[in-house]
């Protein structure tokens, strides 16, 4: 009995000195304040393919953004080099703060000029506290500058507005999903029957194939599409590749525009590989950092 007691206390004594030797890192764990851990880079860029992602940019970053689409006309013989038609949106997008992104752009094919603001409302936390999703608010205004013969409704204006509530979740370091309820107020009316206000919803996702490359896809469904014309939901399947200051995005899509009201409501082709439905898309972004974070 006595021997067992001594053995037990010897064991406890050894345990206590073992714990003392063990616990320097544990002390540091306790001392380190529980700073909130946020999901970093739910998407690698402010756009998934043609549509907005939940991401804003950091303070003082300026993106030179070019987004081009290439497609062929259905003519059996074409004299064009590579592609019959192309359209580019060239834009400047600036991070006013870590949560607020501002951008202006112009599109070559249809003379649309657009400006937008995107605000990051909620950041997803990965430490089990706080929000389990990220939320951003997006608002744009698009100005259609070209003369257009089909528009003969008096109520027509050249300005269209798109509002989006962007909700995204990073499920794992590799996999993110996003759902985007959208309201579009359209300026251009082709027919008196057409509604000026539209409800749509977008879904998008990315799967990281490696440290720098991810597979992305996006689709927009419109609940009340334009009646006077046949339109289709915009779809894209693409690859995003980030290389330090450069972001490259390739995509197969049916959407011709990179302005929200245009690609959501006025995508006139279904997604397939026939001309002129098939569009090849390429976004190139170069990021300038106008703020040095190490200078205090």
């Amino acid at each position: 009995m006595k021997a067992r007691k001594i053995l037990l206390f010897l064991f406890l004594g050894m345990l206590s000195s073992y714990l003392k030797a063990q616990d320097l890192l544990d002390i540091l764990d306790q001392e380190q304040p529980d700073s909130p851990l946020y999901a970093n880079a739910t998407f690698s860029f402010s756009r998934i393919t043609f549509g907005q992602s939940v991401e804003t940019r950091k303070t003082g970053t300026l993106d030179i953004f070019t987004s081009s689409r290439f497609w062929n006309t259905p003519a059996p013989r074409s004299q064009s080099f590579v592609a019959d038609r192309m359209s580019s949106r060239i834009a400047l997008e600036y991070g006013l703060s870590d949560r607020l992104l501002f951008g202006v752009g112009g599109t070559t094919f249809d003379g649309r000029f657009d400006g937008f603001l995107k605000f990051r409302l909620v950041k997803q936390r990965t430490d089990g506290n706080g929000s389990s999703v990220s939320i951003s608010l997006f608002q744009n205004a698009g100005y259609f500058s070209e003369r257009f013969a089909g528009v003969n409704v008096d109520r027509s204006t050249r300005l269209s507005y798109t509002s989006q509530l962007i909700i995204a979740k990073k499920f794992s370091p590799n996999f993110s999903l996003q759902i985007t309820p959208t309201f579009v107020h359209r300026g251009l009316l082709y027919d008196d029957e057409d509604s000026q206000n539209h409800i749509a919803v977008g879904v998008g996702g990315r799967y990281k194939l490696g440290g720098h490359v991810s597979l992305v896809s996006e689709y927009y469904y419109v609940a009340n599409p334009i009646k006077s014309q046949t339109t289709f939901g915009a779809f894209a399947l693409g690859i995003n590749w980030e290389l330090s200051d450069v972001m490259l995005q390739w995509m197969l899509t049916n959407a011709r525009s990179t302005v929200e009201d245009a690609f959501i409501l006025e995508t006139r082709n279904n997604f397939n590989f026939k001309n002129p439905n098939f569009h090849f898309g390429f976004n190139f972004t170069y990021t300038f950092h106008l703020k040095n974070r190490l200078k205090k």
Binding site: N40, A41, T59, T61, H212, E242, D245, R293, L294
Partner: peptide, 12 residues
């Protein structure tokens, strides 16, 4: 120095 570097450092 660059905000994007920090993101890439952590992410990739």
């Amino acid at each position: 120095e660059k905000a994007l570097m920090r993101e890439h450092f952590n992410e990739s």
